[in-house]
Structure formats: C-alpha cells, structure tokens
Simulated scan of single mutants.
Amino acid sequence: MKSVLVSDGMPQLQLELQHMNDDPEIKFIMMLLASQTEIAHDEINNLLVINPKPVIGGIFPYVLYDKSLLTAGAVLIGFSCSFSMAVIPALSKTVEIETELQKQLPWQNMERGTLFTFVHGMSSGVQRLVDGLFNQYGLEINYIGGGCGSLQKLDQPCVLTPQGILQDAALLLMADITSGIGVAHGWQSISRAFKVTEVEGNEIISIDWRPAADVYRNVVEDHSGLRFCEIPFSEIARAYPFGIAKLADELVIRDPISLKGQRIVCVGEVRRGSYVHVMHGKPDYVSAAAGRARQRAMENLKGRTPHLMLFMDCISRVLFLGELFAREITHVSMNDVPLAGALTLGEIANSGYDYLELYNKTSVVGLLASDTSGIN
C-alpha cells in the first residue's frame, strides 16, 4: 500500500495518478476527495473514466491525512492486492439488491478479506444495501466504508467509480487484504428506552405513539436547559443523538439532522418496533472513543502488523467537538502507521465480532495488514 496527499490541484493529481499507474505492483487506487477541492467535477469525472487502473472512493466534507484535517485536497492510496468490484448506479431504485450483489460479486468468488464500501450517504437505499451485504456475505469478511457527500449539496454526485462520479450509488470493492476493524462512539444514554412506533424511511413519525418531535424535545430540553424555539434544531441535536438498542457492547447511534413537521429526519433508517435512547456525550469521553476503536481494531488484527490505518469518522463528531477534534486524532494515531481517511455521512462497518451496521456519530478504524503477496 502506498498513500499520498494531493494538495496542489489538478497537475499534482494527474502526476500522482500517473506514478501509481506506472507502478506494476499497484492494482487499484482509492481516492478520498475533500468537497472543497478546487478541481472541477468534470475533470475528476474524466480522470476516473480514462484512468487505466480502477479508481474508487468518494467525495467527503473533510479528508484526513497523517494528523491533518483537510477541507481541500485528495488522499490517494494504491493497493497491490487482488480484488473484485461492483457498482450499483441507482441504489434507491434497485429493489433486488441481493440479486445484484450476487451477480456482480458472487459469493463463490469471495475470499476472506476486506470489503471497501462507498455509498451516497443520503440515498434511501443505504440500509437495504447494508442488509443485503450481511445476508449475502455474513461476517466471514470485514467491511469498512461510509457515506459520501457534501454538507453544502447533499444530492450532488459523490461516489467515485471507474464509470465516473455517480449520484445515488454504491461502490463495493472486495480486496484480498487482511484487516482488523474497531468501532466505538463514546455517547451515553440520558433517557429510558422508548419504542419507535411509526417510521417512514429515515423519518421517525412517532415514539411511544406520541409525535416523535414532542418526545425528543421534552427529553433534550429538560437535560440541556435549551429551547428549540430559540435555537436551531441542528445546533442542539448534534449533541443529542439517538441510540438504538442492539445485542452489542454499545448502542448504535442515529443522527437526527432536521425536523419535518413533527417528524425527526435521521441519517439512516430507524426500524419500527426498535427501542431508542436519547444520548449525550462529554467531549473528552467522545474524543477518547477513537482510541478505543483503534485498540479494538488492533485486537481484531490478531497479531499481524498494521501497514495503514483507514479512519472513517463521522462528520457530526467534528461538528460536536469543534477545536477539540484534534484530541480525537491524537487518540487514534499510531506511531509508524500512516493514517488516511475521511469524515463521512454515516459509517459502514462490522465490529469484528457481531453485526454489520450503518453507524452515525461513530469512529471506525480499519488497520490494514500487507496483502497476500507480501507487497506492502
């Protein structure tokens, strides 16, 4: 694996891609592109289509390289391992996702390895994709990836594929590379469990048969002392996500991002009949969770030597932590292991021992070992 930061625009991007194309060991390239990079999407699109080696990845609000959080620039990672790839170009309209997965990534061609997963973060098909992946491939492989997109234009094309930059799409690449995955978030419950009684996609309509916004507002206003009538919903809600009860160590987080009348719009679906808590977090504990994710990833790597850390962290964590986000980078970093990653609109991973999930407000660490041919 070889990683490089591109910060000097199109000429450097073309040059670094050419270096990787000329390297006979590199078989595919991952590109993590910050949304404020001053390169026209038409130019990026053309590069993706004509590049002789597959380029996969996404556009994100921020990218991470070493210990830097960047609003502009691109991280390129060249991989030397064998791979299989699938592109689902109209995810929300693809009814038979499992059929499409079996067609493009048949189980008999899958080996124990790592499935890199990039998806339009606001597509209505994300949860069905996650369910389909679990049903098709189970937990015999590791998964890591996240939701692509820009905070300024949630509906713009953002998934990088050999077909170009796609909207409402998913890119799945099965890499013959060993990894250890760790997941942690650091949020803590401040309420009892509530039953979700009505939902529509990623909108919670009612909780305990009461309007969802009323239930949420009562808990948050009582705990915070703030009033939604005085402060924008998003500014308060970023500190008060939902936690979905699962058979795992931590509740799975769902990020409420807006109100739609009395409905609460979340990043990702919440299933009817599930039980949710209102969560809150202290900045020090939330930032330290990244270190716990790294420790779990190292445990799941089972004694192998990590050669690269792929850090997929939620954009709402930096919105919550602000300047304290630097502590999160310090907690997660490892000496002598390069760090590359992105701040995502939802994270996709398995924790190494239980469910494959779509996460929000969560740190996902993937420690990648050398590939099967011994090339680093």
Rank of each mutant, 00 (worst) to 15 (best):
Ser7Gln: 14
Asp8Glu: 15
Pro11Asp: 12
His19Ile: 13
Ile26His: 04
Ile29Thr: 14
Met31Ile: 11
Met31Phe: 12
Glu38Leu: 12
Ala40Asn: 11
Ala40His: 15
Ala40Ile: 08
Asp42Trp: 02
Ile44Asn: 01
Ile44Ala: 09
Asn45Gln: 10
Asn51Pro: 11
Lys53Tyr: 00
Val55Ala: 02
Gly58Ile: 04
Ile59Cys: 06
Phe60Gly: 00
Val63Ile: 15
Thr71Gln: 12
Gly73Pro: 00
Gly73Ile: 07
Ala74Trp: 03
Ala74Leu: 03
Ser80Ala: 15
Pro89His: 11
Glu98Asp: 13
Thr99Met: 07
Lys103Ser: 12
Lys103Gly: 00
Gln104Ile: 01
Leu105His: 05
Pro106Trp: 02
Glu111Asp: 09
Gly113Glu: 04
Thr114Ser: 10
His120Ala: 15
Gly121Trp: 05
Gln127Val: 02
Arg128Trp: 04
Asn135Trp: 06
Tyr137Glu: 08
Tyr137Arg: 07
Glu140His: 12
Gly145Tyr: 02
Gly146Gln: 05
Gly147Gln: 10
Gly149Cys: 08
Gln152Met: 04
Asp155Leu: 08
Cys158Met: 05
Asp168Phe: 14
Asp168Lys: 07
Leu173Gly: 00
Asp176Thr: 03
Ile177Val: 15
Thr178Ile: 06
Val183Leu: 04
Gly186Leu: 06
Ile190Ala: 06
Ile190Gly: 05
Ala193Glu: 14
Val196Ile: 14
Val199Lys: 00
Ser206Asn: 07
Ile207Lys: 01
Trp209Cys: 13
Pro211Glu: 04
Ala212Gly: 04
Ala213Asp: 05
Tyr216His: 07
Asn218Leu: 13
Val220Ala: 03
Val220Met: 10
Asp222Pro: 01
Leu226Cys: 08
Leu226Glu: 15
Cys229Gln: 12
Glu230Gly: 02
Pro232Lys: 10
Ala239His: 13
Ala239Val: 01
Tyr240Ser: 06
Gly243Glu: 07
Gly243Asp: 00
Leu251Glu: 12
Val252Trp: 03
Asp255Asn: 14
Ser258Leu: 13
Leu259Glu: 09
Gly261Ile: 10
Ile264Cys: 05
Ile264Trp: 02
Val267Ser: 06
Ser274Tyr: 11
Tyr275Leu: 12
Val276Glu: 03
His280Cys: 10
Gly281Glu: 07
Gly281Cys: 04
Lys282Arg: 09
Val286Pro: 06
Ser287Leu: 11
Ala289Asp: 01
Gly291Asn: 09
Ala297Ile: 08
Asn300Thr: 02
Lys302Trp: 08
His307Cys: 14
Met309Arg: 01
Cys314Met: 07
Glu323Arg: 10
Arg327Asn: 15
His331Phe: 12
Val332Met: 01
Val337Thr: 13
Val337Glu: 07
Ala340Leu: 03
Thr344Val: 07
Asn350Met: 03
Ser351Ala: 06
Asn360Trp: 06
Lys361Met: 04
Thr362Leu: 04
Ser363Cys: 10
Ser363Asn: 14
Ala369Met: 08
